[in-house]
Simulated assay, not measured.
Amino acid sequence: MNEETQPPSPRERLYRRERRSVPAARAFARETLAEWGVHGRADDVVLCVSELATNALVHGVPPGRGFLLRLLPCGDGVRVEVHDSGDGVPAVPQTDVREPGEGGRGLLLVSELADKWGVGERDPGKVVWCEVGIA
Rank of each mutant, 00 (worst) to 15 (best):
M1Y: 06
N2K: 14
E4P: 06
E4M: 08
T5L: 14
Q6H: 13
Q6T: 14
Q6P: 11
Q6Y: 09
P7Y: 07
P8G: 09
P10M: 08
R11P: 01
E12R: 13
L14C: 11
Y15D: 06
Y15P: 07
R16L: 12
R17V: 01
E18R: 11
R19A: 13
S21P: 02
S21E: 08
V22S: 02
A25E: 04
A25N: 03
A25S: 09
A25K: 01
A25H: 00
A27P: 09
A27R: 14
F28Y: 14
F28G: 05
A29Q: 03
E31S: 15
E31N: 14
T32Y: 09
L33M: 14
W36A: 12
W36M: 14
V38A: 10
H39P: 09
H39S: 15
G40W: 11
G40N: 11
D43K: 06
V45G: 05
V46Y: 00
L47P: 01
C48V: 11
V49F: 02
V49W: 00
V49L: 03
L52V: 04
L52S: 04
A53I: 02
A53Q: 02
A53E: 02
T54G: 11
T54Y: 02
L57N: 01
V58Y: 05
V58G: 03
V58F: 06
H59M: 04
G60C: 09
V61Q: 03
V61H: 03
P62N: 05
P62I: 03
L69P: 02
R70M: 06
L71G: 12
L72Y: 00
L72A: 15
P73E: 12
P73K: 05
P73S: 12
C74K: 02
G75E: 09
V78A: 01
V78I: 12
V78H: 03
R79P: 00
R79A: 09
R79Y: 01
E81G: 05
E81Y: 00
H83A: 10
H83L: 12
D84H: 05
D84Y: 03
S85K: 04
S85G: 14
S85N: 10
G86K: 04
G86P: 09
G88L: 13
V89W: 15
V89Q: 13
A91F: 13
V92S: 13
T95G: 15
T95E: 15
R98H: 15
R98E: 14
R98F: 13
R98G: 15
E99R: 15
P100H: 06
G101A: 11
G103A: 10
G106W: 06
G106T: 07
L108P: 01
L109I: 10
L109E: 01
L109F: 12
S111L: 05
L113W: 08
A114Y: 01
D115V: 02
W117H: 09
W117L: 03
V119H: 08
V119L: 08
G120I: 01
E121I: 05
R122Y: 07
R122Q: 12
D123P: 00
P124Y: 12
P124E: 15
K126R: 15
K126P: 10
K126C: 12
K126T: 08
K126L: 11
V127N: 03
V128E: 02
W129T: 00
C130L: 03
C130S: 07
I134Y: 04
I134C: 10
A135N: 07
A135W: 07
